[in-house]
């Protein structure tokens, strides 16, 4: 039986790496309140699975896995907002004006754009912007390295097109 790991040790690790969780929350939520909710849920899931963390993968890779699984499969954000958006595809997603006002304009623009992305594409954008290697992306998502390469190229092209279109807006 593996030794019981202390909560203090975990909290220290979480404090040092909380930016990973914040980045996941930022990609998957559109209001400060949702961000806090998802942060809480990911933190609880991390703590609950921490006892089984054997260090076979990097702590950060493990954090991405737990964080993305929580955001994609366990957490459901405000449904009303999603449904309202679907009723009129031309209406851009409503981002809370008070959400991360300190963020750079370019990042604000990015978050508005990717709010309409699928949950899997959001994960790909996150892993791309985090400069993750193909084998780490493959391990996190549970796909082959070849598939990871194809998906990353696709998402890179999509981001490049978005940036190009931004010049003409």
């Amino acid at each position: 039986m593996p030794p019981i790991k202390s909560e203090a040790e975990f909290v220290q690790l979480l404090e040092n790496n909380q930016n990973i969780v914040h980045k996941i929350c930022r990609i998957y939520t559109s209001t400060e309140e949702e961000h806090k909710d998802l942060f809480q849920e990911i933190s609880i899931q991390l703590w609950q699975s921490y006892q089984r963390f054997e260090g076979k993968s990097k702590f950060s890779t493990w954090m991405y896995r737990v964080g993305l699984n929580t955001a994609i499969t366990l957490y459901r954000k405000n449904k009303r907002k999603v449904e309202t958006y679907r009723l009129d595809e031309r209406t851009p997603p409503q981002i809370d004006e008070g959400y991360d006002r300190t963020q750079d304009d370019q990042l604000q623009w990015l978050f508005k754009k990717i709010d309409a992305f699928s949950e899997i594409d959001k994960a790909l954008v996150l892993l791309y912007l985090e400069n993750k290697k193909y084998d780490e992306i493959a391990e996190t998502l549970g796909i082959s390295a070849g598939n990871a390469r194809v998906k990353m190229n696709r998402i890179k092209q999509r981001l490049m097109k978005m940036l190009k279109d931004q010049d003409h807006e």
């Binding site: 909290v11 404090e15 914040h22 980045k23 961000h35 942060f39 609880i44 990042l107 912007l129 400069n131």
Partner: peptide, 28 residues
């Protein structure tokens, strides 16, 4: 810019401890 971003909700150890005491509300 992505790499340099900061968050206005960075939590202290005490706040993280409080968060871990909350109950999970996940859909599974």
């Amino acid at each position: 810019k992505w790499g340099q971003q900061t968050f206005n909700t960075n939590y202290s150890k005490e706040e993280l401890n409080r968060i871990l005491q909350q109950k999970s509300s996940h859909s599974i």
